[in-house]
Write a protein that binds this DNA or RNA. Sequence first.
DNA 1: CGAGTTTGACCGGCGC
DNA 2: GCGCCGGTCAAACTCG
Length: 452
Amino acid sequence: MIINQETSTSTSTIASKEEIIMKEEDHNNNNNLKRARVKVDQVREENKRLKSTLSQIMKDYHSLKMHFNDIIQEDHHHAKKSTTPMAASDDESEFVSLSLGRPFSGDSKRGLEMMIKKNSCSDQSKNYENCTSNKHDGLELGLDCNSKDEDRNDIRAASQKSPKNSTSTGDNEILQHNPLKKPRVSIRAVCNTHTMNDGCQWRKYGQKIAKGNPCPRAYYRCTVSSSCPVRKQVQRCVDDMTILITTYEGTHNHPLPPSATTIAAATTAAAATLNCSSSTSPPHHSVSATSSTTTSPNLLGFTFPPNNLTFPRATSQSHPTVVLDLTSPNHLTKFSSSTLFPATHSSPTSLNFSSSSSAKNVSSLSPYYQPNFIYDSNMRASSKHDQKIFDAITCDPSFRSALAAAITSFVGTNVEGKNSGRDFHLSFSQQSSTRNGSVGCATSFLNRFPQL
DNA sequence: CGAGTTTGACCGGCGC
DNA sequence: GCGCCGGTCAAACTCG
C-alpha cells in the first residue's frame, strides 16, 4: 500500500518535472523564434537600407547627368554667340573621369566609374545632345564598369594628341605645351616614417637628389601587379622636413587591397577634377564669382589663381598635378592642383576646403595630423562655365566621398583592411571611431558635407 | 636563393 | 649643339 502510494507520488513528480521541462523547452523555442524574427527583421532593414542607398546613388547620378547636360547646353549657346578663342577651345577634346574605387572581386577589373567624356564635335552646329547619343564623337556621361584602363589611356592619349592637329587657339596652345603628360596627385602630409603607408605594395626602383632639395627623392612602382603602371615619388619637403610629399601617377589596373582603395579613389577623383578644370579654364581668363548663391553653397572653394599654394618642388611642373595638402601649419587643409597650362602662364588652380568656423582645438588628434576644415567664403572661378562644371563635379557624392576617404586614411586608416570600400561614409565613421582623436575631425568634416 | 634596395649610368625633354 | 635636370634602367649589393 505504502509502496503504491510512493509509486503514484513519484509518478506524479516525474509528470510534473516533464511538464516543467516541456514548458522550458517551449520557452526556449519561443526565445529562439523571437531571436530568429529579430534577425530576419534586421536583414530586412539592411536590405531596405541598401536599396535606398542604391536609389540615392542613382538619383545622384541622374542629377549630375542633368546638371552636366544643362551646363554643356548653356556653354554651347555661348559658343555659338562668340567666336573668341576661348569659345573655340570648347571644341577641344577633353576627358574627365570620376572613379569610385575598384571592386575586390576578380571578375571585374574595373570599379564603378563615372565618366564624363567630351570629345570634339567637328560640326559646330551639332547639338551637344546629339553628341551625347554618339559614344565616340560627342559627350558621354555614364556609369562605366567594363572598359580597361588601357582603353581609357588610349582615349586620353588620343584626346591629348588631337590638339596638335587643330588650330592654335585657347586650350590648343596650352595642350601643345603639355603633350601626353599623365596627371599626378601629390599628397602632403606630416609623416615621421620614410614613406606613407597607403596600403599598396611598392618597389623602389630609383633615388635621386633633385635640384633645390637636399633630401633625395625616391621612386617607387606598384608591385601588386607586374603590369601595374602606377608609380609614386616620395620626398621630404625642403621647407619642412617633417612633411612628406608623396606623388602618385597612373591608375592601378588590378584590384586593390581594401586599405589602399581610399587613397586610390581620392587620387583618381582629384586627378579627374584637374582634368576638368584645367582643360576648360585658363587662369588668365580668371573672373571673380561668388559661390554662396550658386547651386551648392557649401561646396569646396575653387580659386584661380591661388595665393598661397605650395607645390612640391620635386614634382615636374610639366605634369598636371593635384596637391592634396593634409598638413595644417595654418590650420587649413588645402586641395590644390596645377594645370595643363604652360609655364608662361602657369598658375595652378586650387580647391580650398575652408569654412568660416573658428579653429577648433584638435590637439587631441594624431600628432602628425591636425586638420581643421575651414570654409572659404571667397570662391572664384575663371568663368561661369568653370564654376558650373566645378559645381557639378563637387556636387557628386562620389567626389566628396573620395576626398573624405583620403582624409580618413590619414586620420584613422584602418590598415587591417576592414574597409570594404563600398561606402566611404560608413568607413569614415567606423574608422574614426577606432581612434578617439579622430572623431572630432571626422565629425567636423562630415558637418561640412552633410551628404557624406 | 629570391626579393628588394642602392647607385651610377643612361636617356629624353627643355632652355639657352 | 650643349648642358642641365628629371626620370628610368640595370648591375651590384643586402637581407631574410
